[in-house]
Design a protein around this nucleic acid. Sequence first.
DNA 1: ATGCTGACTATGT
DNA 2: TACATAGCCAGCA
Length: 123
Amino acid sequence: VSPSKGKTRKATSPESTFDRIYAVVRRIPRGRVATYGQVATVAGLPGRARQVGYALAALRSGSAVPWHRVINAQGRLSLERTAPGGGVVQRQRLEREGVAFDGGRISLERFGWKPRAGRRRRA
DNA sequence: ATGCTGACTATGT
DNA sequence: TACATAGCCAGCA
């Protein structure tokens, strides 16, 4: 929604890497969580989990991206490591959606997001 | 253009 | 379990 913003991106990609990541994170359903690596893979950026973290770090409050649904591969909140207290907010948001913390950890088996690649309609 | 830094992950010690 | 290492990309001075 910023029509007058110069686009110095690659002509090959209509959107920046970060935008692709945000698009995927936005698809994570409520009450579910995804790991950085998973988001990267779904976004078509396999092996770039780190970039996902950087993309989320670049987010600003008010964004429509459910960043709190992205956790690390250990089922923990990476945000807590960098932003003291920030992890508390993330945890509360998740618990409010029904995501349970077991020993400070989230069970990816139970709450992990299982995206469907081609999602066929009714078999 | 170069160098630093930063919400990751898998692997090895 | 904890620490170190390598791979990855974007934004800023």
